[in-house]
Amino acid sequence: MRRSLIADASVTFLFHGIIVVSLYLLFVGHNQPGGGFVGGLVAGSALALKFVVGGAASVRSAVRVPPWVILGAGLVVASVTALVPVLLGHAVLDHAAFEWKLPLLGKVKATTALPFDIGVYLVVVGLSLTALEAFGDDAESQEAEA
């Protein structure tokens, strides 16, 4: 596979930035546009960029955890978050808000919707990884055959 130097260098440069943006979107999601799904998609697009320049191998080196583990963990986190209020006697998916004073960061507000969003984020990232894994390998092996 021929690699383009410009694409290679710029993706190395961009990748971490995009991941940070995706995490930002994940955390502001409760009160502003964003959330687990959008954040997950942004992270997925960063991984897709990795795939475009370096193939499945470079995606695998960036994320060492198998895709289905991420997918399963996300599903577990999201469904547990939905379940907890039910077990406490509230409505399903009900949430509560907390505020802490932390050193350096100042006042931090978090809601229990956040774990749900994190679950969604993991599911989306896991799905994009699975798709890259499933389709990516075929393309490479065929190029090798050709």
Binding site: W68, G72, V86, V92
Partner: peptide, 24 residues
């Protein structure tokens, strides 16, 4: 009481997630 309505939907989803994690 409300759990009876919610659990048939959430338990299989939770099970599916755990089942993926258990793997082979």
């Amino acid at each position: 009481m409300t759990a009876l309505v919610v659990l048939p939907i959430l338990l299989p989803l939770l099970g599916a997630g755990l089942s993926i994690l258990i793997g082979r």
